[in-house]
Design a protein around this nucleic acid. Structure first.
Length: 406
DNA sequence: GTCAATTCACATGAAAGAGACCACGGTCTAGTG
DNA sequence: CTAGACCGTGGTCTCTTTCATGTGAATTGACGA
């Protein structure tokens, strides 16, 4: 056994490496040049540039689908401006906040606390009244003259979670500041995001707007080539693979991030397999793996009660041909919960849980009215059978259930 | 046959409670000089 | 005398429950041709 391991490791060392610099495929990597976004970068720059003349830039709202280079372009531009400001000794500070990172920012309190922390204030994770936090934050930024650019990435997530009140407060903050000026850049994946926003917030947030269109297949190809050159050793990628990969990614709305992840995972698989080249087969495997990993991760991190609801749904999906409705799920769930000694949640709650699964893309849900026979959700599994079985096993393990036949 | 009323089985909303967590300030205790 | 342990208070956060209201079309039943 010991020898086996040693052999394996030695083997691994001997093998031809595929990666040269894996960093270039990480999602937080900033390439030296950003392709196909010149126009947008220029626009961002032109909005922010006044800060170099000590004028407050307009608030900026940026939208575009995932993986269209929004974050990258903004960070790139702000970095440049920051650097220039530094050279000229201008008081500029850029704060970047990704609202998607749970646990960091999903309440009003936490956002402001996080912001205050950026300005060197130590704020407890909880325990203080919210307006106290605001006060601390205000005093933190207003203690010296400075320009602040606040980047709120995935701002749609934020509003979905806690509403637009924070944004309202933030956009109005300038009125209360004597020394400093704050500019907000909102980045959203959701194109329709501004529609259900308080009009006051909307108008002040989107003084300027920039749209990031999705990349087309050709552009993704370029980007991939660029990254691949940095990340991989020469001759490790099979002919035509990049094109194929770009085509995959372009198929689902031009997401460059996905394309890069795809090729990274494919290469990892190839490496593990001991293959010297990454080929189409690996790419296909990678596509499966990414999806599967995502789902499995999602499922295993759910709370027990949610898992049980999901288990009930899958169980029903396996035993029953026609589509599933909420009532059935709840019945099964209640039975199982009772058997396992949980106190079952109310139907109201389960209804929401089902909705959450829909949001996560594990199931797809449609509200239908069956006339006289009521109104309910029609539930369909949206994960493939193979993965579904795996999920079922995980759920059974997590919940300590016996395998139920059927 | 037509049309409005009814009815079902939940969906969807709002509010509020339970049980965590945490900071802060006051009080108590034990250790130190 | 003082540092640290130990409360009680007041605040937030998350997950739930409770109570209320909404809803879309199959079904029903009254009505007129």
């Amino acid at each position: 056994m010991k020898h086996g391991l040693r052999n394996y490791l030695e083997n691994f060392m001997d093998k031809e490496p595929i990666f040269k610099d894996k960093m270039a495929l990480q999602s937080n990597y900033t390439p030296e040049f950003i392709s196909h976004r010149d126009e947008q970068i220029e626009q961002v720059a032109s909005v922010l540039a006044p800060v170099l003349r000590l004028e407050k830039p307009s608030n900026l709202f940026i939208y575009g689908k995932t993986g269209t280079g929004k974050t990258l372009s903004v960070r790139y531009t702000t970095d440049e401006i920051c650097q220039m400001a530094k050279e000229k000794n201008l008081p500029l500070k850029v704060v970047y906040l990704n609202c998607k990172l749970k646990k960091v920012v999903d309440t009003e309190y936490r956002i402001i606390a996080q912001l205050a922390r950026e300005f060197g204030k130590d704020i407890p994770p909880t325990g203080l009244p919210t307006d106290e936090i605001y006060k601390i934050f205000y005093s933190a930024i207003d203690k010296e003259r400075q320009f602040i650019v606040l980047i709120l990435d995935e701002i749609d997530q934020l509003v979905k979670k806690i509403g637009d009140e924070v944004l309202y407060n933030l956009t109005r903050i300038n009125a209360d500041l004597h020394q400093s000026q704050i500019t907000i850049i909102g980045i959203s994946n959701n194109l329709l995001f501004t529609d259900h926003l308080d009009p006051r917030v909307k108008s002040s947030l989107s003084e300027e707007e920039i749209l990031f269109p999705p990349y087309n297949a050709f552009q993704i190809q370029n980007i991939l080539k660029q990254r691949v050159e940095v990340a991989f050793l020469p001759d490790t990628i099979e002919e035509g693979l990049i094109e194929k990969c770009a085509a995959y990614a372009a198929r689902d709305h031009g997401d460059a991030r996905r394309a890069i992840e795809l090729i990274r995972v494919a290469a990892e698989l190839a490496e593990r397999e001991g293959s010297a080249k990454v080929n189409i087969k690996h790419l296909d495997m990678a596509e499966d793996k990414i999806e599967k990993d995502r789902i499995i991760d999602l499922v295993s991190t759910q709370p027990k009660q949610h898992q049980l609801v999901l288990y009930s749904i899958i169980h029903l999906a396996n035993t029953k041909k026609e589509s599933i409705i909420t009532g059935e799920v709840y019945e099964i769930y209640k039975g199982l919960a009772g058997k396992m000694g949980f106190r079952p949640l109310t139907q109201r709650r389960v209804s929401d849980v089902v909705g959450e699964f829909d949001m996560l893309g594990l199931i797809s849900v449609r509200v239908i009215s069956k006339g006289r026979y009521g109104r309910t959700r029609e539930i369909n599994m949206s994960i493939v059978d193979q993965t579904k079985d795996k999920v079922l096993v995980i759920l059974e393990e997590d919940l300590g259930l016996e395998r139920t036949e059927g």
